[in-house]
């Protein structure tokens, strides 16, 4: 481990870290926001479930590097534009979470759903204030997987020259020098751990009823 190299390059590494953070966080959020309505549609209309899940599955099998290369042609962006990364990872997150959201809504016990209807909830309000809150634990679990997978996928974009922690791996390979590679792995793990913790805490705060202890 060459600490001198790390010291000399601290500023560069920090800027890559910051870029990595938002390149992984933004698509996770956008993917979730898109997955909520699409997942709700897949849950609500059985015929759309198979279609949406199949498309999502196919989307997820596209290699990330291929998507990074193809997207500029489709979006009209330049190859180095970080927008390509954001769009590609948003699609991956969406692909992962549509099914999670649909299945999470399906996990809400039917009597609860029925009693919401019987009380006089309209469908959208029932979805937003009864079913979605109850689906949070399952959606949260899926979101953790998506967030962590985004942290590692962002690194691939280094091959295109988009600056983020993946650059450390390139530098390491090019110089046959392990310090940046180890630093890159440690920082990626750290980012993933931070995301994971944030989601875990958010889910806990949003679901106080799951920890209510029995007084019986």
């Amino acid at each position: 481990m060459n600490w001198n190299w790390l010291n000399r390059n601290t500023d560069q590494i920090l800027s890559w870290l910051l870029a990595h953070l938002w390149l992984a966080a933004l698509p996770t959020l956008l993917g979730l926001l898109l997955a909520l309505p699409l997942g709700a549609i897949a849950f609500r209309y059985r015929w759309s479930y198979a279609a949406l899940i199949t498309v999502a599955g196919l989307l997820y099998t596209i290699p990330s590097i291929a998507l990074f290369v193809v997207l500029p042609g489709i979006l009209g962006t330049r190859i180095l534009n970080p927008l390509n990364v954001v769009v590609a990872l948003t699609l991956f997150t969406l692909a992962l979470l549509v099914r999670v959201v649909a299945d999470a809504l399906d996990s809400v016990p039917p009597p609860v759903r029925q009693s919401a209807t019987a009380m006089g909830y309209r469908p959208i309000r029932s979805l937003l204030t009864v079913q979605l809150p109850l689906a949070i634990p399952v959606i949260g679990a899926g979101l953790r997987v998506a967030a962590v997978s985004n942290v590692s996928l962002v690194s691939v974009a280094a091959l295109l020259g988009v600056p983020q922690l993946g650059q450390l791996f390139l530098v390491g390979f090019q110089l046959d020098f392990y310090t940046p590679i180890i630093a890159g792995i440690v920082l990626c793990l750290l980012v993933a751990a931070v995301f994971d913790t944030i989601i875990l805490v958010a889910v806990r705060l949003a679901t106080p009823w799951t920890r209510a202890v029995s007084h019986r």
Binding site: P111, V112, Q114, S115, A116, T117, A118, M119, G120, Y121, R122, V130, P133, L134, T207, W209
Partner: peptide
């Protein structure tokens, strides 16, 4: 329908309470 239902009490088997409230 929702207006009608709000004017009719409904008790379901196993209570069907909202677990998050």
């Amino acid at each position: 329908a929702p207006t009608l239902r709000r004017g009719i009490g409904y008790v379901i088997q196993n209570a069907g309470l909202f677990p998050h409230r």
